[in-house]
Nucleic acid binder design. Structure first.
Lengths: 341, 341
DNA sequence: TTGAAAGCGCTAACAC
DNA sequence: GTGTTAGCGCTTTCAA
């Protein structure tokens, strides 16, 4: 008993393969009501389901899409993935999850594999920044791409959904400065990522009015992990007396790492040092003290990315080439209460 | 310029498609060294890569596998996924991520879709317990299945990799009781999951010696989310005076939720109430006080699951049908220090 | 409205 | 060692 194929169904229904195919694909024309009914019956009786590979080979459509992310282990991404997966699944698409582990080489390999698999589209949260050869490969193959979370290459070249990193970072830095802090430590992400560039720009804009602030601004680059946040603070504290009174981290994991390091060093938060993160992952709410952070609509980004790739796949025009969602500062308890304005 | 196919390569190399195919698949026989070299050259010059769907249709092998998990948003699963994905990717497999959102109906749909896609294997962290019709569908289609994290159906029927839930839960409950607690609150998972059954068995074994303990044991069922852990505690506290002095939660998220609820209610942990979780997610280490918990080798489970499905796919025998990894209790600070024995 | 047949790009049995 | 050819299971022209 080998698997049924469309010829078997055709035989049982007393029609041709072509007719079965038409019914299968709900083609409105080309099949009489009665015939259609007959085929439908056989279809449900047998529980027939067409083989995806055959379909893909014949049509070039796979009903699957590739999702590339840097690190599924960072709580930010599951949220993104979940949003995208749910939206795409509702439309009959399935997801190849590609965890690039922050490695552009691996990202490239994944892209080639996705091309081989004839995915209908790719949602890319890239591990890199400037280099976009592999993305151009997708374009060559006419596979739609939507960037998400991070820009790659020249800003305008690919559609995508992002967050307003500049404003988010600006608001965070502004709050820190308004609270009377004089020496800001900015734990940024890897130097060349678009997010890092944008968030740095936001921080600098917030300090621009005061030259002394700018001069005392200290920038360190981490890799978005808890450990890197902790290590950076530990190294600083070990190197000499503490010379910062506020920390802004480019993501919550690093902020949380910093928080831990400060606690172990006996530095009071927020009394002696204020801390702000970025992302608003679930953990940010439940640590003690709860983390002040710039909240991203992460799940919504995933959904928006899915919606965008679907439009592209269907050949519909994009209302906006680039969707930028707001990142809003949430004051919790790693910053001191400000007097109401 | 349509995509190159194997016929184009054959033409350029002045050989037949069969020969190209043999080279492509590294078949040792059937191609002379010189010819092989010539074909190789054309292959690399053109950067030719075969279309996966054509291959799949012809061979029945897709080089992709399905991974089904209940909730990618729970920090336990990304770890599992990451371990499996990395191991599988190293062997040239790609992953369909299926986030079942705890819904068995959805799980079934995913399984059908995976069959259509002719995945070479399935790793299943099931949303359900008793019902395994869809798993039998996979068997019918001769697609190997490896259970992971949770058993489904009768224990022995499918191979898989699990953790020793009974011992883990026993050790946790034992510690709580040994600390002098008299009234244990067990925040278990959904009633019929294998994990819930096993962990409950562990808890009961730990209390068995003392009838009074058993009588005062209170069991509530949550859904593994932070909110459910918090809500359960809140409801209990709202309903009357606190009548428990220790909480064991079936996962860290619920334990963390409970911790938050206790804090908000002004109950001191561990002084008034001791709390233990299960999983040992990253957050468990960084909350204040750090959570005592039963640590699972989550990433290793993912890797072991991947290794197992690979053996099955390759038709190799399994050394053990069921791999059970140890879950070890990690004492941190939501339990009081015990005098050394 | 329906069917016959070609074709998607590859593999593998068989012939030479 | 190498090539010819028949599928794999579907879709889609083109005729009838």
């Amino acid at each position: 008993m080998s698997r049924l194929n469309i010829a078997d169904i055709a035989r049982r229904a007393g029609v041709s393969k072509a007719t079965v195919s038409r019914v299968l694909n709900n083609r409105p024309e080309g099949v009489g009501a009665e015939t259609r009914e007959r085929v439908r019956t056989v279809l449900t009786e047998t529980g027939f389901r067409p083989t995806a590979a055959a379909r893909c080979l014949s049509t070039g459509v796979s009903n699957s899409i590739g999702l590339l992310i840097p690190d599924i282990t960072n709580p930010f991404y599951p949220q993104l993935v979940s949003g995208a997966e749910e939206a795409l699944n509702a439309e009959g698409y399935h997801l190849f999850l590609c965890n690039t582990r922050g490695d552009v080489a691996r990202e490239r390999e994944y892209v080639e594999a996705l091309i081989d698999k004839r995915v209908d589209g790719v949602i890319l949260d890239s591990a890199g920044s400037a280099d976009d050869d592999h993305v151009n490969r997708l374009k060559q193959e006419r596979i739609p791409v939507v960037l998400i979370d991070r820009v790659i290459g020249r800003r305008s070249s690919y559609p995508g959904v992002f967050v307003d990193n500049e404003t988010g970072a600006h608001d965070a830095a502004r709050l820190l400065v308004a609270g009377g802090n004089r020496s800001l430590l900015f734990l940024n992400g890897p130097k060349d990522l678009s997010q890092s560039v944008e968030r740095l720009a936001g921080v600098e804009r917030a300090l621009r009015a005061d030259r002394a602030l700018i001069e005392r601004l200290r920038i360190l680059n981490g890799d978005f992990t808890l450990d890197s946040g902790a290590r950076l603070i530990e190294q600083l504290l070990a190197a000499g007396p503490r010379d910062f009174d506020a920390v802004f981290a480019a993501n919550d994991m690093m902020a949380l790492g910093a928080l831990g390091a400060l606690r172990r060093a006996g530095v009071a938060v927020p009394a002696e040092v204020e801390v702000i993160g970025f992302d608003d992952i679930e953990t940010a709410r439940i640590v003690e003290p709860p983390l002040t952070t710039v909240s991203q609509p992460t799940r919504a980004m995933g959904e928006a990315g899915a919606a965008m790739i679907l439009r592209l796949i269907r050949g519909q025009r994009l209302t906006r080439k680039s969707v930028v969602l707001a990142a809003v500062l949430i004051e919790r308890s790693t910053t001191r209460k400000r007097p109401p304005r």
